Computed example of a mutant assay.
Amino acid sequence: MALVKAGLVVLDCAEPEKLAGFYKELLEAEETHESANRVEILGAGGTRLAFRRDMNATPPSWPRPENSLQVHLDFVVEDLDEAERKIVGLGGRPLETKDASGPHEERGYADPAGHSFTLRCVPPTAPKSG
């Protein structure tokens, strides 16, 4: 048995219930824990996130250098445009960033509390049928 098991990513924010709601909708997640200062969710794909109340939380400024990157999440999607519409509809916003190098197309976003995350489109490996 492992001494240390994988935990979860915790995002500090002023309103954990509100931010958890954003990610619950985005990840089709279920809430696994809620207390006065913390909400935890489990996404349909197994992603575990928690949101902790911090009344002094300052949104990251990435890609600007001051108070830059505090945490960064990557999510894999099949359709970037559809995912972007959902993010914007939930209160997220696209970030202006330069195209990232690499084999996969990706786009940067900020959640309603300002945490950055990336959607990465991974081409299907199976041959197209029909």
Results as ranks from 00 to 15, higher is better:
Glu82Met: 08
Asp54Gly: 07
Glu34Phe: 02
Arg38Gln: 14
Ala83His: 05
Lys24Pro: 01
Asp79Glu: 06
Met55Val: 01
Thr125Ser: 12
Leu11Gly: 08
Leu69Ile: 07
Glu40Lys: 04
Pro16Met: 04
Lys86Trp: 01
Asn67Val: 04
Lys128Cys: 01
Glu34Ser: 07
Arg120Trp: 03
Val39Ala: 15
Val77Ile: 06
Glu96Ala: 14
Asp81Glu: 11
Arg52Trp: 14
Ala110Ser: 07
Lys98Arg: 12
Val4Ile: 05
Arg64Cys: 01
Leu119Ala: 11
Leu26Ile: 08
Cys121Asn: 07
Gly21Tyr: 09
Leu19Ile: 05
Pro103His: 09
Pro59Asn: 04
Asp81Ala: 13
Tyr109Pro: 04
Thr125Trp: 01
Ala50Ile: 02
Pro16Asp: 02
Leu3Met: 15
Thr125Asn: 08
Asp111Gln: 10
Leu19Tyr: 06
Val4Gln: 05
Ser116Ile: 02
Leu119His: 01
Glu105Asn: 04
Gly130Trp: 10
Ala29Glu: 13
Ala2Gln: 05
Thr32Ile: 09
Arg64Lys: 13
Pro16Lys: 09
Ser116Cys: 13
Ala110Gln: 06
Asn67His: 13
Leu95Thr: 01
Arg38Ile: 06
Thr125Glu: 09
Lys98Trp: 03
Val39Ile: 15
Ala2Glu: 03
Glu84Ile: 01
Ala14Ile: 10
Ser35Thr: 08
Phe75Tyr: 12
Ala126Asn: 00
Val122Gln: 13
Glu106Asp: 04
Leu11Pro: 08
Val10Gln: 12
Leu90Gly: 09
Thr125Gln: 14
Thr118Trp: 11
Glu82Asn: 13
Cys13Ala: 13
Leu3Gln: 06
Pro63Thr: 05
Asp111Gly: 12
Val71Met: 15
Asn37Cys: 00
Gln70Lys: 15
Leu95Trp: 00
His72Gly: 04
Ala20Ile: 03
Ala44Leu: 03
Glu28Val: 03
Glu17Ser: 02
Met1Phe: 09
Tyr23Asp: 12
Leu19Phe: 05
Ile87Ala: 15
Thr58Lys: 06
Ala44Arg: 09
Val71Asn: 15
Glu17Asp: 13
Gly89Asn: 00
Lys18Glu: 08
Val122Pro: 11
Phe22Gly: 05
Leu90Ile: 06
Gly43Leu: 03
Asn67Gln: 07
Gly92Pro: 03
Ile41Glu: 03
His33Asn: 13
Leu19Asp: 10
Ser61Gly: 12
Glu66Tyr: 06
Asp12Glu: 12
Pro103Trp: 11
His72Ile: 01
Asp74Cys: 11
Glu78Gln: 09
Gly130Val: 08
Leu26Phe: 07
His104Gln: 13
Asp74Pro: 09
Trp62Asn: 11
Glu40Ile: 00
Val9Gly: 05
His72Met: 04
His72Phe: 08
Leu73Thr: 10
Asn37Arg: 04
Ser35Lys: 12
Leu3Cys: 03
His72Lys: 02
Phe51Ala: 03
Thr118Cys: 10
Glu66Val: 11
Gly108Trp: 13
Asp54Cys: 11
Ala14Ser: 09
Ala20Asn: 02
Val77Ser: 07
Glu106Met: 15
Ala113Phe: 07
Gly43Thr: 06
Pro65Met: 11
Ala113Ile: 04
Ser35Glu: 05
Arg48His: 08
Leu73Tyr: 07
Lys98Tyr: 11
Asp79Asn: 12
Ile41Pro: 06
Phe117His: 05
Pro127Leu: 09
Lys86Val: 13
Leu80Trp: 12
Glu25Ala: 11
Arg85Ser: 13
Leu8Asn: 06
Lys128Gln: 03
